[in-house]
Design a protein around this nucleic acid. Sequence first.
DNA 1: TAGGTAATTTACCTCTTGGTAAATTCACCC
DNA 2: GGGTGAATTTACCAAGAGGTAAATTACCTA
Lengths: 211, 211
Amino acid sequence: MATPRSKAGTKGVPRHLRRQQILEAATEEFGSRGYAAASLAAVAERVGVTKTLLHQYFGTKEDLYVACLTPVGDSLLESIRTAMGDGRTTPHTPLRVLRGIFVALEGRREAWFVLYDRSLPPGGEAARTAAAYWAAIDALAADGTTELLRAAGSTDPMDADALRHVWTDLVGTLVRWWVKHPEETPEAMTRRCARLFTVAAALAVDPVPPS
Amino acid sequence: MATPRSKAGTKGVPRHLRRQQILEAATEEFGSRGYAAASLAAVAERVGVTKTLLHQYFGTKEDLYVACLTPVGDSLLESIRTAMGDGRTTPHTPLRVLRGIFVALEGRREAWFVLYDRSLPPGGEAARTAAAYWAAIDALAADGTTELLRAAGSTDPMDADALRHVWTDLVGTLVRWWVKHPEETPEAMTRRCARLFTVAAALAVDPVPPS
DNA sequence: TAGGTAATTTACCTCTTGGTAAATTCACCC
DNA sequence: GGGTGAATTTACCAAGAGGTAAATTACCTA
């Protein structure tokens, strides 16, 4: 028996497990480099497998991206929905939403950047899928912000739109900061956000006295 | 005289003007698609010129990117510096900074995304140059936020760091919104920000009464 | 008007990337 | 223990990217 010259053949990894491995590696790759800069070869190498396998598991590059995006988008969406509860928006809602997002993202924080990738091929299925998630999340955000805004007495629709953007991007900001601080648990991060809100509010309302 | 079979030869466009055209087109392309997804052929087509010309004017793709980045980064940095004035941070400073940024960006708003491109080849000159601008801007932001924070009585350095991130990314958010609303002048946008700040502060401080 | 120079294209090369068909090896089960 | 099917690789292709040397045209001036 000569030493096998080819390394083909099964490695004993069951299909659903391999699937999971690929998905995780791809999510990290897409999340850190961005869709356009990410290469399938790099993903394959992370898994310790060949590029071809990725195609046989997930099809095209865009398909793989969508496969990565879907679970993140779904769990994020669900977390936000449950955090917003019965539809009544209270001052506690923002923090509950944040906490939901942190928990949903824990263990795969870079996945956030998969959802908000700006280098997707325009017109493709990937872009459409991502846009659908954005729309769903934005709708929820709009619900919350307009209700808060109305309660505060403001009615300008442009302002409402801008505030929605501010809120959603603020979430992005906090997530990004959180990604850079892996030691911070979701709970600790939520508490930090609470403190930050208080401080920011005090800043905006309480002018610094000239000295 | 047979009709010329080749379209080579000068088109009468002086060098510095062509340079400017290329720079503008490249900035738009990089800004809208992101560095990795942007193609030199597309830039060339925007200008109505050949890919080769880009190389002869600016060298490699990264060189071209740096050439796009530098003027934006410089003018942005200068605008922020002058907006922050003598170093004394007052409650009016944030809005002055925002106004400076809007004015500096007017006419090439997408350039913002050139500065904050996350798909640059890691380790390259482009990434280094961009990182240098980030550092410079972040330093200014840190100055302002810590001074405001100290005046408000907070001392936690992690909170200060987080607040700096919140501020810089809030700027990004507002710019992004502004990019999507081309009709809004820098002045109008500044006023909108002022209103928004007031509303947000009221929201954060004034809980919605349960009804 | 002839020649020099600036501006630009042609044609080509190479490397990478996404993608596919076919071959190869392993594990399991009668 | 031999066959059957699942898991995986080899080898390959085509397209597109960045990049370069050389040729081509137009403009300007003496």
